[in-house]
Design a protein around this nucleic acid. Sequence first.
DNA 1: GCCAACGTTGGC
DNA 2: GCCAACGTTGGC
Length: 135
Amino acid sequence: MNYWLVKSEPFKYSWQRFEQDGKTFWDGVRNYQARNNLMAMKTGDLVLFYHSNEGMEVVGIANVVREHYPDPTTEDHRWVVVDLSPHKAFKRSVTLSEMKAKPELSQIGLIRQGRLSVMPLKAEEFDCIVGMGMA
DNA sequence: GCCAACGTTGGC
DNA sequence: GCCAACGTTGGC
């Protein structure tokens, strides 16, 4: 089991819409590092859902329901998507500033490499954020 | 609205 | 293969 974090601007695709849809393919990744992370996702992996720009907070947990396949929104064969479903909404959102304040989260990609849109998390880091969101 | 970080492009 | 220019992302 691996753990991940993905970013979405709520204007483009929000957690609320994700819950309404029940499932979505995660498209729009146009960065090799993020794509490589998508390709490493396995069915059943858990994925934190982060709202960038507006909100700047983790709002819930998704799970991977289909592993990577070619991005249906482009002819360019370099890019892939995965299918995600909502797993559990956080009881309360965990903000970026809260995460920055946690020494054990100082190494996560969200803080160290701000522009990366799909990143791996260690189990401890995942647990730490979920612990705050479900408290 | 500004700016830092960083990826990509293209000239040489 | 290097590097300057440029574009995009995203926090502040």
